Simulated assay, not measured.
Amino acid sequence: MTLREYRIQLGWSLNKLAQEAGLSRKAVANAENGIIIRAGTAKALADALSRGFGYQINVLAIEGLHIQ
């Protein structure tokens, strides 16, 4: 599942995911749009999704992320 699909399943906006992950809205949008992101950014996103869903989501389970 892609980052956008995970986010939509949670009913979260870009801003909400950014807030939960401690990232900027731009960083989340970049990740969703396939722009290269840092490993720390990917981990922050996976951790935020994990908290939202209540189970562990591994970075590698998020399709379409391009990690530097």
Rank of each mutant, 00 (worst) to 15 (best):
T2M: 01
I57G: 01
Y6A: 11
D47A: 14
D47T: 15
L23P: 13
A44C: 05
I36H: 09
I8M: 14
S13F: 03
A39Y: 15
V59I: 09
F53Q: 03
K26R: 14
I8R: 14
V59R: 04
Y55L: 12
N33V: 00
Q9T: 11
Y6V: 04
M1E: 07
G11Y: 07
A27H: 10
I36K: 14
I62L: 01
I62F: 01
T2N: 08
L3F: 00
A46C: 07
A18L: 07
T41I: 11
A29V: 03
A31H: 06
F53M: 06
I37G: 04
A61I: 00
L10Q: 09
D47V: 10
F53T: 05
A18D: 01
I67C: 10
D47N: 13
L49K: 07
I62M: 02
T41Q: 05
G54T: 05
L14W: 03
E63M: 09
T2Y: 01
K16V: 13
K16H: 10
A18V: 06
A29G: 14
G64I: 02
G22S: 12
E32M: 07
I35F: 09
A39E: 15
A48P: 01
R7N: 09
L17F: 00
I57Y: 00
G11Q: 10
I37A: 11
N30L: 08
R4W: 02
A27F: 12
A39R: 15
N58C: 02
